[in-house]
């Protein structure tokens, strides 16, 4: 049986990628609010997803404040779909 992708099989990373699946982009603070994670933990998990090319992180400034936006890549979308398919087969849905 196919194994679940270990990078996605973690609570916060799965939350991030599932949120991003429905949106074009999201700001860091909105993601913080949606996941109820701590800033540090969210940053670490985002970095892991970015390193794997599952998401893109864009840093800029808005009204002199740093602005971080995240978006899902095609690879990230494919991996989430594959993760869901594996889950379904494991649960026999």
């Amino acid at each position: 049986m196919k194994k679940l992708n270990p990078l996605l099989h973690q609570e916060l990373r799965l939350s991030i990628i599932s949120f991003l699946a429905n949106v074009e982009w999201v700001e860091f603070n909105k993601l913080l609010e949606a996941t109820s994670a701590s800033k540090g933990n969210l940053s670490v998990q985002l970095k892991k997803l970015e390193t794997a090319d599952y998401i893109e992180i864009e840093k800029s400034f808005k009204d002199n404040y740093p602005l971080t936006r995240c978006r899902m890549t095609e690879l990230g979308r494919d991996e989430l779909e594959s993760y869901i398919q594996t889950l379904k087969s494991m649960l026999d849905i």
Partner: peptide, 21 residues
């Protein structure tokens, strides 16, 4: 993490992102 919990997370976060309309 249990597989049922994964499903719950995916559903919850997709629902949460839809609220952002």
């Amino acid at each position: 993490m249990e597989t049922t919990k994964s499903i719950k997370i995916i559903e919850e976060m997709m629902r949460e992102s839809r609220k952002s309309l």
